[in-house]
Design a protein around this nucleic acid. Structure first.
Length: 668
DNA sequence: GCACAACACTTTTTT
DNA sequence: AGTGTTGTGC
């Protein structure tokens, strides 16, 4: 019998003279190469503002248009918002098929896979995800249980301990190494901490609790130990794209390697110069090592900048030039014109806030730039406190991104704890939180009640008929009956009734209850979009709204024109017409925690690079000369400013001019 | 033995 | 603003 081979063309070889999009006209040469290359490992080194998102969007469209099933594409990004936005744009370019592309963060992807296939490594499909605060609480409970409290010697607090543990996981160091390297003050406690870490892991596993790190670790384990699952996923996701590759850690890189085992169709996109998450284990060397991990890698560089005017790029180039590891790259643009970035020393923080607020007002009202096209960026969330006051004073509406998040506020966590036990009645952390809110209930009583209710068939019903004659009996019963009543209701209704239940507790517990009340209203609005409580809770831990608490309530309609205040970390991937970077002072930026560590300093520098490359037209760099935060002393301008050629900056000096109502400064 | 109010202290960046 | 510590009162 004659064998006759059928030659199936690969998707990138399918002749299609009638693509609905004119790719050649829309993209430059390098971008086009990215878009047209579907097969094999590809590393895209994408400089800031080089149209990376646009390129990825077109690539998704082209793949789908070439007949690749959207479900066979996996797009891993840093935030889920980023992937949704890309897929939305791809859908707008082509059609709604693009929305069926699988996308999300490593953590959300892992969550999905582990719920489905986690059985193989001992995970129940109903496991609970711990956010940072929850994981810290677990450590707190263990500390209580075993009484490590050392007299005389200082033992680290739960937050510090958790930071150590998570660093160990993400950098793949032993506890010893982490302590020696980053927490040498606690060198004495290595033994206890190692023991505690083992208990922590054991506790999580026994209670089916997964923290952020576990999501990655368990996914890696699943893929390594279960060939069949790996094969299945590899067959399913034929094309993998990973964005922000410079901010992945070793575990994530290994996950990518394992997922692509059978086909090698991986595109990693990133920029070493923008790596800003080393503190949580990210390793920009992942980019440099990608070609070794995937032999035969095609490297494509996107170097043309479409975002910023040349005078801004001159400054960003000066910034990154200071890096000791040579990321030597120079961004260039074909755009002409633009003005030099402006350097503004101010007397103190007050004056810095006044300057920023006044200048923003001018750009808004006189030059007609919408507030939403301007941003103020800072190293740490608290750097903006004074500015927030000033903006409020002048009625300039803004959103703040980063810092104490909505989801982390105590009163929000209180309500969420009540919801969580509805889904998982074995969630001790949440029980504890709820019980401690009741008058007369402390850690011991809470532990005692929890121990009893865990063995009950119906813990809610048991609580509602709580037998013990104690002063907190009525409160416990009220809690039980509330939970019992709301159990079958839809999420929004549950939250509404919980708010009623919680109102007296809120008043009792927090002096500023009036401020907190609107947040609960906001929580209620969010839950209205969900029909499943489980989904809602998972979403809130994996992809919480990243706006800070204070703003959450006031901002309801999306279209409102709002100034953006953001930490630089949260500004990744975004751009604005005008950008203000404040507090460019030693100890602030670079942060005081990085001053004695070369690697950390280097990361601060990259952070400044990320900040300055966000600006399209105008860039303002400010620093107060006088810093009254930590005792009164004269601060020094950031060392990073020294590396920027003065001819690339315009310097303004402020003077105050009295006007009728109150003193405001003007420019010289 | 336990809960709680008053106090002092420290506070980066995030999935 | 939250955490841990310490002293007081039930």
């Amino acid at each position: 019998m004659k064998k006759y081979a059928l030659k199936i063309p690969r998707a990138d070889q399918v002749r299609s003279d009638h693509f609905s999009l004119d790719y050649d006209a829309e993209l430059n040469e390098a971008q086009l190469q990215v878009v047209k290359t579907f097969y094999g490992p590809i590393l895209v080194v994408a400089g800031a503002g080089s149209g990376k998102t646009r390129t990825l969007t077109y690539r998704v469209a082209r793949m789908v248009e070439s007949g690749i099933a959207p479900e066979a594409i996996l797009l891993l990004t840093f935030t889920r918002k980023a992937s949704q936005e890309m897929l939305r744009r791809a859908a707008a370019l082509l059609d709604t098929r693009c929305e069926h592309v699988a996308g999300g963060t490593f953590h959300s992807f892992s969550n999905m896979i582990l719920r489905r296939y986690g059985r193989a490594i001992g995970l129940d499909s109903t496991f609970t995800i711990l956010d940072q605060g929850d994981a810290e609480d677990v450590i707190g409970i263990l500390l209580d249980q075993i009484g490590f409290k050392k007299q005389g010697r200082s033992f680290p607090k739960k937050g510090t301990i958790h930071a150590m543990f998570t660093k160990a996981v993400n950098k793949e160091f032993s506890i010893d190494t982490v302590i020696a390297k980053y927490y040498s003050t606690y060198f004495q406690e290595i033994e206890e901490l190692t023991k505690l870490h083992a208990l922590f892991c054991q506790y999580k596993f026994e209670h089916q609790l997964l923290d952020y790190d576990d999501l990655l670790v368990y996914l890696q384990r699943l893929l390594e130990q279960h060939q069949d699952v790996r094969q299945h996923l590899s067959d399913l996701y034929q094309f993998i794209m990973v964005d922000e590759y410079q901010d992945t850690n070793k575990i994530q890189a290994r996950i990518v390697r394992l997922l692509a085992a059978t086909h090698d169709n991986v595109m990693a996109v990133g920029d070493e110069a923008q790596s800003i998450y080393a503190f949580r284990g990210a390793n920009y060397r992942n980019i440099l090592e990608f070609p070794e991990q995937f032999p035969g890698t095609t490297i494509i560089k996107l170097e043309e900048n479409f975002r910023s005017v040349q005078p801004i790029l001159n400054v960003t180039n000066d910034v990154i030039k200071q890096a000791r590891e040579s990321f030597q790259k120079r961004l260039y643009t074909r755009q002409i014109g633009g003005t030099r970035p402006i350097l503004v020393p101010t007397l103190n923080e007050r004056q810095q806030s006044q300057f920023v607020a006044q200048r923003i007002l001018e750009l808004w009202q006189e030059e007609g730039i919408p507030l939403a096209k301007m941003a103020v960026l800072f190293r740490s969330s608290f750097h903006a406190f004074d500015l927030e006051l000033e903006l409020n004073r002048r009625n300039i509406p803004f959103v703040k991104v980063g810092g104490v998040k909505f989801i982390e506020a105590a009163h929000i966590k209180d309500i969420l704890a009540h919801l969580r036990v509805l889904v998982n009645p074995l969630d001790e952390i949440s029980w504890r939180r709820m019980l401690l809110l009741l008058d007369g209930v402390g850690p011991k009583t809470a532990a005692m009640i929890i121990q009893q209710l865990l063995v009950e068939q119906n813990p809610f019903a048991w609580l509602s008929e709580y037998p013990k004659k104690t002063k907190y009996r009525l409160d416990v019963q009220r809690l039980g009956s509330t939970l019992l009543t709301i159990l079958p209701l839809p999420p929004a209704e549950q939250v509404r009734m919980l708010r009623e239940y919680y109102a007296p507790i809120l008043k009792n517990h927090y002096d500023d209850f009036a401020k907190r009340e609107p947040d609960l209203e906001q929580l209620n609005i969010i839950t209205e979009q969900f029909t499943s409580l489980e989904k809602f809770l998972t979403e809130m831990t994996l992809e919480p709204p990243n706006r800070s608490v204070d703003n959450m309530a006031q901002v309801e309609d999306q279209d409102e024109d709002l100034l953006v205040l953001s930490t630089i970390h949260s500004a990744k991937g975004l751009e604005w017409q005008s950008v203000f970077v404040i507090w460019l002072a030693e100890g602030r930026f670079p942060s005081m925690y990085s001053l004695d560590d070369d690697e950390a300093l280097e990361e601060e520098l990259r952070l400044l690079y990320v900040a300055t490359t966000r600006a399209m037209q105008h860039l303002y760099l400010t620093y107060p000369v006088y810093d009254n935060k930590w005792g009164n002393y004269f601060g020094r301008p950031s060392r990073f400013l020294e590396g920027i050629s003065r001819k690339n900056l315009e310097q303004w000096s402020l003077f105050e001019e009295d006007i009728e109502e109150d003193g405001e400064e003007e420019f010289a």
